[in-house]
Amino acid sequence: MMLAAENLTLMRDGKPVVASISAALTPGTITAIVGPNGAGKSSLLLGLAGLLDPAAGSVMLDGQALAAFPPRTRAQAIGYLPQTPDIAWDVAVENLVALGRLPWRDRGTAAVEAALGALALEPLRHRPVSQLSGGERARVLLARVLAGEPRWILADEPLAALDLAHQLSLIAHFKACARVGRGGGQGAGQGVVVVLHDLAIAMNHADRVLVLKDGRLIADGLPETALAADVIAQGWSVAARWLGDAGERALVAGKV
């Protein structure tokens, strides 16, 4: 169950935003995509989700070009969580989560219940989304993705609007997805790819980090190496160093 970018080049509005990136992603792990503003992180995620057609190269799912997949087959395999939690209608939590079944064209009651349970949303199931806090809303939107039982979860800055406690709780949910099989069942965990801004969270919680700058991959590997001080200097033009022990690192940064 591999998802891989092969010499992937993506264009938006006629400009290249991702330039010949190759990376094979592993299911059952959390991959973080980081980089300065405008580095092409969100575009790369859209490309991996099959929502932005490659200008050159390809995205491969199980050895087949993702662009050749019928949209519904692709949607069953890859769940995508957009950055802006933009909900047009004030629907109840359980109805919103059930939208995750659209790729399957079934009610998928068991999967919806499992998703509500995994994110502790049962008490809120009848509440309209307009009456949720930011943290609750983020959990509901993730539950929508989980209800689709995708093999890959691609999330664009899911932590952006959350306070520290909610960030950690959402990270814990992503870890659970990677460790436990789909829908809380047995089998291989889901592949999780998240775009992150907070380098410390990437350092402490990701299994692998891709660092982007100007659409190019400048580092790829374990967090300790991909987020080494020299990479941060190259990517963000900031002198920084890590404090603390592995798993509890903190970043101290100053101007170059």
């Binding site: 929502l51 949607a75 069953q76 769940g79 995508y80 209608w89 939208l99 659209l102 689709g148």
Partner: peptide, 20 residues
């Protein structure tokens, strides 16, 4: 009708759920 439901979460999310 069901495609319109998918749009509830925005165009990108809708396409990610298989909307054509």
């Amino acid at each position: 009708a069901r495609s319109l439901d998918a749009l509830t979460l925005g165009e990108d999310a809708a396409r990610s759920m298989g909307l054509n």
